[in-house]
Each structure stands twice: as C-alpha cells, then as structure tokens.
Amino acid sequence: CFDCRRRRSTQTCQHPDLTRLAHESQFSVNEVEALHELFKKLSCSIIDDGLIHKEELRLALFQAPNLFLDRVFDLFDEKKNGVIEFEEFIHVLTVFHPSAPIQEKIDFAFRLYDLRQTGFIEREEVHQMVAAILKESDMLLSDELLTMIIDKTFADADSDKDGKISKEEWRVYVLEHPSLLKNMTLPYLKDVTTAFPSFIFNTEVED
C-alpha cells in the first residue's frame, strides 16, 4: 500500500545518513553499509518493516531470558517507541567496536546492569541477574551461597558501603577487573565488510 511504501522509503538509509552515521561512530561508510545488510536481515525475520521488533531481537539472541532481552532492547530503543531503527542499531554497535573508548564500554555495561534505571546497581538487581542465569543454565546454588557471592562482590565494588554501586564505584571496580568488559567488545565489528560482503551490490561510496 502507499502508506507502507512511504513509511519504508523514509526508513531507507540514504547516502547522507550513511556518511553521518559513519562520522558519529567507529565505522567507515562501507562498514555502516555492511551493518545495514545485517540490520535488514534481522529486521525482516518476523515482520518485514525495516525495524527490529523485540521478538526479532529475541530470535537473534537465541531466546535470551526476558530480563536480559528487555534491558538490551531498551538500550537499543533510544526513542522508546518499541522498535529499533537502523540509526539506533549503529549507535549501540559502535560501543562494541574494538576501537571504541573504554569509558563508553564502562558506561554501557553500567546501564545494562542498572536494570531499574535508578542510576545505581543495587543488590536486588545483581541477585535477579544471577538467579536468572542460574535458572537459564539449570544450575543449582543454595540461597546461602548466592548471598555470599553477592556480599563478596559488594564488599569489593561498593566502596562507600551504602549498599549500591554508583557509576564512579563501577568505573573504579571495572578498571581493576577488566575481564568484566570482555562482552563489551565484538571482534566481528573490525571485519564487518568481510562478514557481510553483499553490501558491495548496494554500495553508494567507496571508502
């Protein structure tokens, strides 16, 4: 229908957008084009409307538990309109680029773990995430042991002992434990044009 075509045409990533997105991110124009190939594939897996819906993200992330899926989706969905647009997709993926500043990765990881978006990582949130993973993995852990693990973690990270981890406490803690950021870098992004060579058929520029 005409409305669908008009809506789709406004979502098509034209050359100026590609250039702007490349300027705003760690990606070259060709890499943004290659990521657009990935975006198109993800965004048509259930509803072919050029937008990633939550169920499409769930499908791509192999049926992750709701707790994590909701948080990841919220971080992608900057406009809070219930869908992920290509621009929002690039804004998140650039944080995961191997060359992205470490502070951006630290901030993003903080936002992931701050499930209730209170500006702090609280004990209940950590408990909730660990319990969800235990359930996901069919692992059994006594409440006593789980409490001990969380107590030990907060004893290390919560330096002012107010029962919650602030952004600054998180920054200091992560810099002491850099392995916590390993999921925040996706090596694929360094070679994305090779991973999605089909962008060449639609490319508008040569890098």
Partner: peptide, 25 residues
Amino acid sequence: KFFNAFEFISSMSSGFDLSSLFESK
C-alpha cells in the same frame, strides 16, 4: 571460579552477549 557476581553474569549470560547477532547471520 565465579566468586564474583559480575564475573559470573558476564561469563554466563547469553542475554548480554551481542555476538549472537552475528552468529545468526
């Protein structure tokens, strides 16, 4: 091995691991 809750979450959570986006390509 997992005496740190965040270590446990980042090692075990598939939900926060965006590499699956590329693996599904």
